[in-house]
Design a protein around this nucleic acid. Structure first.
Lengths: 210, 210
DNA sequence: CGCTTTATGTTGACAGTGTAAACATAGGAG
DNA sequence: CTCCTATGTTTACACTGTCAACATAAAGCG
């Protein structure tokens, strides 16, 4: 499969070609280049051919977003694999670094993953699954650290949400140019710094009655 | 000033009317209703009249975004004023609650404030100022808590960024529907919970060499 | 007062967008 | 070989942001 199919009436695998063209256009020319007509032109097909493979533009964008979450999960998994002897807390830090590293390396894609059109994810179960999987990796690492006694015994969902909010907020603020140099101590290694802050602070966290 | 000017050729104060119409349309019909033509129609003026008061659509959006940051700062200030005897750490928590409370009460507006078009804020100094002011309130509260010995003596810019990332990430994740009920323990009071977590954890934070 | 300049709105147009309806083509099933 | 069905195309529509040229009213100035 995946033949180029040079000039035939039927493209062969338009769907994949469109997705890949979209990803390339996103990296190269930014989100403004993500118009159906532009993508169709890039693939060499008429504008409305897209509708044979996607219900509408949102559907295509959801596919792109899904691929983004899968890439995010893959990047985190990759980093975990490169340090197999890490203990539970270290694994959480690795995930935080991987998360923010991916998000900051693909700002346009990451923005799209949380775009306005994706809010109602009920329409795109694959997207919801991919997003849940990424979050699940964080949650699992948090749970592992709790089990290992490296994090306080607090509801895992709450701890995970805190961790997620931290890396997500940091990534988006960075991508939006809201952070000055003073707030970005070591450039690329910012994620590491922040994750360490999170881990260290969480380690001493105690759920006060008051 | 500010006369209605019912049917005269000149509107009177089109600029303010457009901004207010945009804010109402945003609350009522969501961001899709924010087209120049739609706003012009709502105000009862021809589409291109907008260009006598705004360079282009981004310019108008930047004004809306600026107003958003001003509202955000005002809300935080309001809550601070309602509890004048709060100590430094409590003040930080109040700000966190106010921030996330405002962001979650105005999801479309808050999204616009960090929208794609606003990334290059150099073109909109008023927007940059308003955003910096909101962040400044957080930073000042963090600095106060550090001075009072309620937070560890760590670079204020870093602590503030952590606090900002937390409330920003939490707000956007919530607004994007990424948080389930398990992660939203007390609905509206979520900001409080989270801010307490931040404060408690920060209180025990220690910057490790390691 | 009358005239002119300037600020403000309007008309008309253009390129670009997402999308629907009707039609065309080709590859596979019977 | 024939028909069906998946896949693309053509045409069209409503909508968008924006520009150039024109119209109007208000303000400034003699």
């Amino acid at each position: 499969m995946n033949r180029p199919a040079p000039d035939s009436y039927h493209h062969g695998n338009l769907r994949d070609a469109l997705v890949q063209a979209a990803l390339e256009a996103l990296e190269r020319d930014g989100p403004a280049a993500l118009s159906l007509r532009n993508l169709a032109r890039a693939v060499g097909v008429s504008p409305t051919a897209v509708y044979r493979h996607f219900a509408n533009k949102d559907d295509l964008m959801a596919t792109i977003a899904t691929e983004g979450f899968e890439g995010l999960s893959a990047e985190m998994q990759r980093r975990l694999g490169s340090e197999p002897d890490a203990d539970a807390l270290r694994r959480l830090m690795i995930l935080g670094e991987g998360y923010s590293g991916y998000a900051m390396s693909h700002p346009a894609h990451y923005r799209l993953m949380f775009g306005r059109r994706m809010v109602d994810k009920d329409d795109y179960p694959a997207l919801a699954r991919a997003a849940a999987h990424s979050y699940g990796m964080l949650e699992q690492a948090v749970a592992g650290a709790v089990d290992a006694g490296q994090l306080p015994d607090v509801p895992v969902a709450l701890l995970s949400t805190m961790a997620w909010s931290l890396v997500h907020g940091l990534s988006t603020l960075h991508n939006d140019g809201m952070l000055t140099d003073k707030q970005l101590p070591r450039g690329e290694a910012l994620g590491e710094t922040f994750t360490r802050m999170l881990a260290l602070s969480l380690r001493h966290f105690a759920p006060g009655k008051e």
